[in-house]
Design a binder for these strands. Sequence first.
DNA 1: ATACATGCAAAACATTTGCATAAGA
DNA 2: TCTTATGCAAATGTTTTGCATGTAT
Lengths: 146, 146
Amino acid sequence: MADSEKRLEQLVERLREYGCRITPQRLAILRILTSSENHPSAEDIYEQLRVQFPTTSLATVYKMIAMLKEMNEVLELEFRDRSNRYDGNRPYPHTHLICLRCGTIQDPEQSELENLPRQIALRAGYQLVSHRFDIYGICPACQAAE
Amino acid sequence: MADSEKRLEQLVERLREYGCRITPQRLAILRILTSSENHPSAEDIYEQLRVQFPTTSLATVYKMIAMLKEMNEVLELEFRDRSNRYDGNRPYPHTHLICLRCGTIQDPEQSELENLPRQIALRAGYQLVSHRFDIYGICPACQAAE
DNA sequence: ATACATGCAAAACATTTGCATAAGA
DNA sequence: TCTTATGCAAATGTTTTGCATGTAT
C-alpha cells in the first residue's frame, strides 16, 4: 500500500535527522509497524522480526520502540494484564475499539470526540498533554463465534 | 462524610451476600477505599492499612481488590509504568483527569461523554462492555509550582 | 468445628538495563 | 576509526500464587 510506504520513508527520514543509524533490524521493525493495521505488541513485532533476523532479541524491539516514543512517532497503548500494543501509523491519541475476547484493536470510522479533552482539561485548569479513549467490547466475529 | 459511610455499609452488605467473611482487615480496606477521594494505589492502601495492622501484607490488599473487582464494586485504572489505581466509590467507567507530574487523579465536574461509547460500539457492530476515558495533563498546582 | 482469610515467601511476566561484541557512518 | 546498535543475560517492579497458620461464623 502506498500510504504505508510513504509513512516508512517519512520515519526513516526522521530517524536520520535524529542522528540514528538505519540498521537492517530497525528498517524491518519500521516496516512491520507501518504495514500493520492491528496494533501489534512488542512480542508480535519480535516474532515477525525473527523471520528475517533469527538471532534478534526482544531488547532490540523495545529499544527501538523507546526511541520512537521519544520522537513521538509511535502511540503506545498500555495494558498491565497483557502486553502493550503499538500504532506506528497514527502516533497521536485517538479512539480505540478493543475486543476483550480476541484482543483485536481497531480504530472506529469516526469518533466525534472533537476537542472534548481540551474543554474538560481547560475547565479544570489542567494543561492538556494527551488523552486516552478506549471502548471495550466483543467484536462482531467473536459474537458470531460463541 | 455521610456518603462514604453509606457506601461502606452497602459494600459490607454486598460482601455478606457474596458469602465473604467480614474480617477487621477487610473492613479497614473498605473504609480506606470509600473514604478516599484520590484513587489510591494498592501500595497506598497497604500503607494506610499498616497503621492499624502492622503485620499485614500487600497480598491481603490485592486479594481484597480482586474480590471487589469480581463483584464489580471497584474500578481499576491500569498503568503499566506505575501502580494501578482504584476507585471504590464510583465502580463504573467514568472520565479521569490525570496529572502527569504529581500523579493526582480526579473526576471532572461534568464530562458530557454521554452515550458516545455505546454509539461508537454499535456502529462498528461491537457489544459494549466498558470504556476508558483518561485526560492527561498538568494540574493547576503543578503548573503554579514550576 | 471447619471452611475461609491472612501473611509470608516465592513465582510470574512484561519491560528495562548492563555490557561485551558487532557493524554503520 | 569510532561511535552507536545489537543481543544475550540479569535486574526491575507490580501483581499473583502456594501454603501453613490463624480466625470468623
